[in-house]
Simulated scan of single mutants.
Amino acid sequence: MKPIRADFKALFEAHADEFLADLREVLRVPSVCGAQTFEAPFGIGPKRALETVLAIADRMGFRTGQVGNCVGWAEYGPDETQAPTYFGILGHLDVVDVEDDWHYPPFELTQVDNMLYGRGVLDNKGPFLSTLFALYLIKTQKITFKQRVRIIFGTDEESGSQDMPIYLAEHSAPYAEFTPDCKFPAVYGERGLLDVQLALPITDGSEQQITAIEGRFAKSYLPDHAQLILADGTVKTYHGKKAPSNAPKWRIMCYRS
């Protein structure tokens, strides 16, 4: 990868506090998927995050818009009449829910040494906002583009990306795009998602011994503990390491107590 140009690096460093202030504002919105409500198809949190970033993009002087109260966009370059197609940068503002296993407040920006902590710093508010900010700095230098560049930000990536069909029903897809999600540039695109349920019969009669299986279960991660409650009142607790569902090699329950 090419080194960052010295003038761009100096430009960012001169505006670093401005970027951190915007990131802090976006992180403070607990944009966890919630129940659908009025003009908020994926809950109040994701809708508030959408409004927050649209306000930031408006302040930066971009052309902006939103679709279905769940997908926003900020655009720079020639307008649609001059450039019918556009290059896309796709990010998302929703985050996975939190538990009480944080060392720092999850919905605040905490800087320790040279590290930033907060829910969404890596996935995906931090990388997404850095892209928006980079385009803003390019804009301040009056650098012109031959093609439109549109940054698209959804609010349902963590729960299945049901927002993207809503966007594509009103807007064409970009001719090319990348995704600054998570460990960019190692990650530059969204993976496909297969959501299946498997049902297997238990033929030895042992299911009659089980009353319930309890724990905090979600599609996005494997919990670090679960309880098996037996018909005779016995409770067996299993502990392991919490891991994202997209990293199967980490999904091992380590020990039992």
Rank of each mutant, 00 (worst) to 15 (best):
F87M: 08
P46M: 02
V95D: 07
L129R: 05
R63A: 14
N124E: 15
M1A: 14
V32P: 07
V98R: 10
E99L: 10
Y117L: 05
A83T: 14
N246V: 08
T237P: 10
I229E: 01
S245C: 03
G34Y: 07
G65Y: 06
T140P: 01
E25V: 05
A186H: 14
D181M: 05
A21R: 14
K47R: 15
C70H: 03
V235K: 15
P78S: 04
R256L: 12
I151H: 14
L168S: 00
P105C: 09
A231R: 11
A134D: 03
F145P: 02
Y117A: 05
F42C: 03
Q82R: 14
F107R: 13
V149P: 00
W102I: 07
Q66T: 10
M164K: 00
D17I: 04
Q197F: 12
V96M: 03
G34V: 10
A212M: 09
G68R: 00
F217W: 10
L194R: 10
S31N: 04
Q111L: 12
G91I: 03
Y255C: 10
K139C: 06
E157R: 05
C254T: 15
S130A: 13
G68H: 01
L194Q: 14
A176N: 05
D195W: 14
K9G: 08
G72W: 12
L168F: 12
A40Y: 02
V121A: 03
E214S: 05
P185E: 00
F12W: 11
D22I: 07
S257L: 11
Q197W: 09
A243E: 12
A212V: 12
S161E: 02
I89N: 05
G126C: 04
D22T: 08
N114S: 12
E18D: 11
K249M: 09
W250M: 12
L90D: 03
